[in-house]
Design a protein around this nucleic acid. Sequence first.
DNA 1: CTTTGGATCGTCT
DNA 2: GACGATCCAAAGG
Length: 210
Amino acid sequence: MSTFDGAKRLERSFAEGDPVEVAPQLLGKLLQRGALLARIVEVEAYRDGADAASHAYRGKTARNATMFGPPGHLYVYFTYGMHYCANIVCWPEGHAGAVLLRALEPVHGLEEMAARRFSNERIAPAPRPESLCSGPAKLCQAFGLDRGADGFDLVSGVEGVCLLDDGTPPPKEPAVGPRVGLSASCAARHERWRWWVPGDANVSRGPVAR
DNA sequence: CTTTGGATCGTCT
DNA sequence: GACGATCCAAAGG
């Protein structure tokens, strides 16, 4: 598990706090898996029993158990019958919270990402780089993350996936807005707990994207 | 350009 | 039995 270009692993303490505080700080950090490397450009925060949009809202279950575990681990869930989404677990063990990775800027391994995203068929023309990781399910597909990756430790990186810091600071003034995909009846749909790098081409296309 | 509908199944009511 | 922390292709302006 080699790091990249002198980038350093994130400390576990980085994820020990409130996901609403941690999320914007993750903008600019790197996700690595083998030769794959990409920079985080869009995130959302999810809390616990006080956040009606969170998987942890109604307590611990088999699906969301990782959210209640120690910080700095990967929480991957299956949704819509065909997609996976990846989160970074926050808060100390026993307290559930996470940051959803919504979009990444591909840095290395674009061809491998494209191969996972667009299996078989067309090798050329090469897909636009912004089509590889510009959504929570897209980035999971590009990185090959599924329920088998749930619980991976992103700090030690022992399972082959880790978070790195190459010194790039988060934006001083990140763009902010409401979270994407919440139903009209969700009590927490107005919370502005989505952050992204202003103007980044890899940010997901949502109702109020960009 | 924007809008719509289909795919597809684990999870919780 | 209903509903997703989604994506894509196709249809409509």
